[in-house]
Design a protein around this nucleic acid. Structure first.
Lengths: 219, 219, 219, 219
DNA sequence: AATGAATGAGGGTTCATTCAT
DNA sequence: CATGAATGAACCCTCATTCAT
């Protein structure tokens, strides 16, 4: 008898990182489903199908769980646009388009994740920690965006346009469109939002993105 | 006789509406200062310098206080842009500029109020009531914006521009700039935000807002 | 001018005793309607159609109001059976019957008042004050009952019956029937209760109350 | 090895049912000691020597705790008289005597439990839930009592006696004697109450319970 | 005499955290 | 590693009482 121990049923004890990831996912679902202020250790544990004690076991406190959840969303976003840049064509225009498009990728625009972003932004004024985490998010992204806009302006015929203003305006528009998708999913779908952002891009840099209006006007 | 009797201590009993307004202001400050999820009856009462019981006396529940606070901010915003439209010049361009400018009026961009907006947006996914209140906000504003953009497009030489896309893009950019002012007040001041929004406006409708770039290009 | 002051509308200020009586009636209704533990100054004031402050104005505290309400019910009961005795015929049998009947007089069995009795009895173990008030109630009543039972026993052919035992048993039965009327009004009407009590009386003192069974047996 | 390990402190975690029973006992003591309306979660927890949180942990609400406490007392009473019937001799007279005696068994007449009965009866008018629980109590008991009285009447020479009237009268007397024991423990001891009830029984069914008076009269 | 706005202690309940198992 | 019983601080809310009007 004995010999090989059956591994049939799911192991009760999972590797540490796997459990943490599982709990972070449960936290995201809970924030989206109940709201941040109604997200409790109990709702997260229930969402994960585990016992209450497990959160303090793996994260020591609820506060830490929330911070790591925010960090996870921030990091995931960052790695996603970095990957998008890597995969994009070599031209600045292609890279800029890729950067805009990634903001409307299904996995980024997932309403659960949007809820998490805005939940933390909603508390950010009174929580320097949140603010710092979110500010970090923007740092690299902003630099890239400004750089690319600068490149295009240098390449094309865009007199009088300030790279910082355009870049920040574009980023702001994306954020605003996220909000619309969160608050009014009926009136603002992902595709519509992407369309609006791309229209704006085309209009801002008609030389690069073949704005039909300008093209027609030119001829 | 006796002339004016000095009222040393503040009167204990205030007219109903005055107290309610006072408590709503205290709620705004508390949400901004502590965050929505750390805003308690106690923090609001302390902010107002009154006792805890007074909130249930005037609002029956914390939930109602929060809803009325949100409604107050929503209403105030609405009446502000309506007044701005009333006072604006007759041309559509003037009216559109007024509509954009009002989003960056000091009283609208007040960081306390921004915190309230985003606090409720952050919970909106799980609270249909919040979502509905906020959706109402947009309804009239959107219509106006779309109308004015349509007018300008009809007047000017803007082939291929869709009013809905432009209008929603502009509104989204304002929201995104609000977020920046909330999260990174150092990097995004009210003046900068206004500049970015006006740049975008000028760029979108160069015929109306004398985009220097286009003007130069034209000559 | 002025002359006679119009007395048309109900005077806002009532004589002291009238107000107190009015508030005691409201308290009885409130205890019956909401239960003693859900009877608040607010429910009593609402029941009386007056403002909250009036109770402390007339009774100084809720506790006092409750005590006076209990005392009122106790006194009213006492004066009622005293009057019944006064009006009863001269014979002990008539007087005893009158004493039993008064327990089932509509005004005594009023479910609101029963609710008050049992509300206070329910708290009596932990409230010596209530217990004392209720004990006072019994004192005189018991003496009368015992006396009358003793008289009948002396008059009739009731060997081996102890007056105290019979008297207390009869009183207990009345109380138990009150409880039935309170808890199960459907199953125990006032008339039924009276019937049971009178049956018991007739059975206990067949010589005086013409118990049909015994009468038949005698012939 | 090591033999029995001494468990110095009481185990912190008890089986679920044991804790619930413990808390119900504490509730009974609290109602008896402070009265129902002064029984708070805090008094019950203190009586049990546990923390406040434990009540909601095991009963979800105070209301539920009170209901289960009432249900416990009701059930205990029921099982007690059922057991008494099982153990009683086969004759209807013996069974009836057993039924009456159980009402004055020390464990039933325990003043703490009496306080609970009357506390809930005192609120019963305004709480249909209480009333229903108490009505259930009576259902089976009444049926048995009526049945047994009917049997005795059929067996003996008791012309003109109605089983329902006698049965309900006896039950009412027991309730009234409970009240006396609760309100005036000095003047009504358990033994006295039992004596009164048995006197009544003997008097009502002299053929079965050898009423000395009647017996003497017969000779 | 009467009102009702205001207070604040104390109620029931929630929930992050601890800890014996 | 994982559980869930237990804790107790802090929450929202109620309500007896006070007091300016």
């Amino acid at each position: 008898m004995s010999g090989a121990v059956a591994k049939a049923r799911p192991r009760r004890t999972e590797p540490r990182e796997k459990r943490r990831a599982q709990l972070i996912q449960a936290t995201i679902r809970s924030i989206a489903g109940q709201g941040l202020s109604d997200t409790t250790i109990a709702t997260v544990a229930a969402e994960a199908g585990l016992s209450q004690g497990i959160i303090n076991l793996h994260f020591n406190s609820k506060e830490r769980l929330l911070l790591e959840t925010l960090a996870y969303v921030v990091d995931e976003y960052k790695s996603r646009w970095e990957r998008a840049l890597d995969r994009a064509g070599p031209s600045s225009a292609e890279r800029l388009a890729a950067l805009v498009e990634v903001d409307f990728h299904p996995s980024v625009c997932d309403r659960n994740k949007l809820a998490v972003w805005f939940a933390f932004w909603g508390e950010s004024k009174s929580r320097p920690t949140y603010r710092r985490l979110c500010a970090d998010r923007d740092r690299g992204y902003d630099r890239q965006l400004r750089q690319l806009c600068g490149d295009l302006i240098a390449e094309g015929d865009y007199p009088g346009i300030k790279p910082e203003s355009v870049a920040r305006g574009m980023a702001a528009m994306s954020e605003g469109l996220w909000l619309d998708m969160l608050v009014s999913p009926r009136h603002m779908t992902r595709r519509q939002a992407l369309g609006i952002a791309m229209d704006h891009l085309a209009h801002t840099f008609p030389d690069h993105f073949g704005d039909p209006a300008q093209e027609r006007a030119r001829t």
